[in-house]
C-alpha cells in the first residue's frame, strides 16, 4: 500500500517540503527571483558531492554551498549584471561538483538522486531534521513578512522607510538557501525549483490578495507533491517527472483562468460608464 511503512516518511517529508516551497516560492515569484531559486539549489549540488567525498554529511555540504552561493549572488550581484553573475557562480559551483563526482568513482546513481530527488527512499530519521529546518524557514519568513513584502513590491519606498533593499535581498537569499538545504535531499536540486515557481505562479492567477495567494500557493504545492508521490508509486516512474510536469500544468491552468477572467471582466466594463 502507498500509505504504509516507509511510504509514511515520504508523505510526511514531502508535505513539509511542499509547505515551505509554497511559502518561500510566493516571495520568489513576487521578487522575480526565479534565477536565484534555480541557481542556489542547483549549485549546492556541488556541496553534497564534495561532502560525500571527504566523508561529511550531505546536509552539511548542501547547507554550506547553498549559503555560499546565496552570499556570492547577493554580494557580486550588488552592482552590474546580476543575471550574468548568477549564471557564472552557478556554473562554477557545478563544475566543482563535476570534479568531485569524477573523484568518487561510483557516484553516478547519487548524482541522479541529488539532481532529481529520491522521495520514495526517505528514511524515518530524515523527518525530524526536515521538520525543524522547515519550521525555522517559516519562522524567518513570518518575522520578515511585512518588510520583505514592502521591499519586494516597492524597494525605493522601503529604502526611504529604513528597510534596506540589500539587507532584504540577502535575507531572502538566505531563506532560499535554508529551504534548499532542507528540500534538496527530498526532491532534488532541479525540482525544488519547479515547486517554488509553478505553485505560486499559478496561485497568483486566481487571487488578488497576498495572503490568499500564499495559502493557495501552499495548497497547490501540496497537491502537486501528493499527486506526484501517488503517481510515482503507481507507475514506478521518477517522482521528479510528476513534480515538474504537474507544476507546469498548474501554471498553465492559472494562465488560462486569468485569461478567461480578463475576457469575462472586459465585457461589462466595455460599456460606456454613466459618469
Amino acid at each position: 500500500m502507498m500509505f504504509e511503512g516507509f511510504m509514511v516518511n515520504a508523505w510526511e517529508v514531502a508535505s513539509i517540503v511542499a509547505v515551505v516551497a509554497g511559502v518561500v516560492g510566493f516571495f520568489t515569484v513576487l521578487r522575480g527571483a526565479a534565477f536565484a531559486a534555480h541557481s542556489i539549489p542547483n549549485g549546492s549540488f556541488a556541496g553534497a558531492a564534495g561532502a560525500s567525498l571527504v566523508g561529511l554529511g550531505t546536509l552539511f555540504g548542501l547547507g554550506v554551498f547553498a549559503f555560499a552561493g546565496a552570499l556570492g549572488i547577493g554580494l557580486l550581484g550588488r552592482r552590474g549584471r546580476h543575471d550574468a553573475v548568477t549564471a557564472l557562480m552557478l556554473v562554477m559551483m557545478l563544475a566543482l561538483g563535476a570534479l568531485f563526482v569524477s573523484f568518487s568513482s561510483e557516484y553516478a546513481p547519487e548524482v541522479y538522486s541529488l539532481l532529481f530527488g529520491e522521495v520514495l527512499g526517505i528514511s524515518a530519521n530524515a523527518v525530524l531534521p526536515t521538520l525543524l529546518l522547515g519550521i525555522l524557514c517559516l519562522l524567518v519568513v513570518a518575522i520578515l513578512y511585512r518588510p520583505l513584502m514592502l521591499s519586494s513590491a516597492l524597494p525605493e519606498v522601503g529604502e526611504a522607510r529604513g528597510i534596506s533593499a540589500f539587507a532584504m535581498e540577502l535575507a531572502f537569499l538566505g531563506v532560499l538557501a535554508l529551504a534548499t538545504t532542507m528540500t534538496v535531499p527530498v526532491v532534488g536540486t532541479l525540482l525544488i525549483f519547479s515547486l517554488m515557481i509553478g505553485a505560486p505562479a499559478a496561485a497568483r492567477s486566481f487571487t488578488d490578495r497576498p495572503a490568499v495567494a500564499m495559502a493557495l500557493s501552499v495548497a497547490f504545492a501540496l497537491a502537486i507533491v501528493w499527486f506526484a508521490i501517488a503517481a510515482s508509486y503507481e507507475t514506478n516512474w521518477p517522482v521528479g517527472f510528476f513534480v515538474g510536469t504537474a507544476s507546469a500544468a498548474a501554471f498553465v491552468l492559472g494562465r488560462v483562468w486569468a485569461y478567461a477572467r480578463a475576457r469575462m471582466g472586459r465585457r461589462p466594463s466595455a460599456r460606456p460608464s454613466p459618469s
Binding site: 511585512r146 513590491a153 497568483r204 488578488d208
Partner: peptide, 20 residues
C-alpha cells in the same frame, strides 16, 4: 501580475517596518 491590491499596498505603509 503582482498579487497585491491597492488596499494591501496602503496597509503595508501602516507598519511595514515592524517584524512579525
Amino acid at each position: 501580475d503582482l498579487p497585491l491590491r491597492g488596499r494591501d499596498l496602503v496597509a503595508l505603509g501602516f507598519d511595514a517596518g515592524r517584524l512579525g
